[in-house]
Design a protein around this nucleic acid. Structure first.
Length: 215
DNA sequence: GGCCAGAGTTAGTTTACATCA
DNA sequence: CGTGATGTAAACTAACTCTGG
């Protein structure tokens, strides 16, 4: 899969950009219904300066997709050499980083130790992973969200089982109550004065709340 | 007012499956 | 029938925005 990067360079990015696709940035989708505008996404500053200027001449910088500039950590993008993220994005529109096995493992291991990082830990980990601190931060955010979601699903499943179990118990008790009521009718019958008492009756009547004391 | 975390959303990628030649 | 190409929906997840503490 990762071997296909070269093909990807040829396929998507350039074709889309020069193909005059009606690209609608997120901001515009939300606030601006002007879909006729032709836009190009100039996401990364690692692009050669002249190329950027050329594109700016025919485009409208949306400022949306990569608004993440508000994070100072993003300056680290320039230090992220050798990473797929950069090598892909410099030539195409927004591409998604795929973490390597090693990166994922290290992140997971770190997450097991601390589900949240302080700034120093974040930067240290980012350095070890050749990622930006922002990327590490986002990964931890998403990881926490996934953990929480899984926990919620597990809780949900547990409560569902509890509910089913209680429903069964409720049904069983209702049946028992029904049985006892019918027995009470028999007991009151003059023909059946010496009917042995049901053990559960004795228990419940001891607290004054058994079937015989109901109503 | 800046920072951070969580919630919710968007969008790129992968995977599984179906269909067709 | 088996096979490769293609299309599509679902799942996954990096990156994003918004909001509240």
């Amino acid at each position: 899969m990762e071997d296909d990067h070269e093909d990807e360079h040829c396929n998507t990015g350039l074709g889309l950009k020069l193909g005059m696709t009606h690209y609608v940035p997120k901001e515009q989708k939300r606030h601006n219904k002007d879909k006729s505008r032709v836009c190009l996404d100039l996401s990364f500053t690692l692009r050669p300066k002249d190329e950027e200027e050329e594109e700016e001449a025919i485009s409208v910088r949306s400022g949306s997709s990569f608004k993440s500039v508000h994070h100072q950590d993003d300056e680290d993008h320039a230090t992220n050499k050798g990473n797929d993220f950069i090598s892909i994005n410099k030539n195409s529109s927004r591409k998604k980083l795929r973490l390597t096995k090693e990166q994922s493992t290290l992140l997971e291991d770190s997450f097991k130790l601390h589900t949240a990082l302080n700034p120093a830990q974040k930067h240290e980990l980012a350095e070890r992973l050749s990622l930006t601190a922002r990327q590490v931060e986002v990964w931890f955010q998403n990881r926490r969200a996934r953990t929480k979601l899984k926990q919620t699903e597990a809780d949900c499943e547990f409560l569902k089982r509890c509910c089913e179990s209680l429903s069964e118990e409720n049904t069983r008790l209702k049946k028992e109550l029904q049985k006892l009521r019918s027995l009470r009718l028999i007991e009151r019958s003059p023909l059946c004065l010496h009917l042995p008492a049901c053990p559960s009756w004795e228990k419940s009547t001891a607290f004054g709340c058994g079937p015989l004391h109901q109503q």
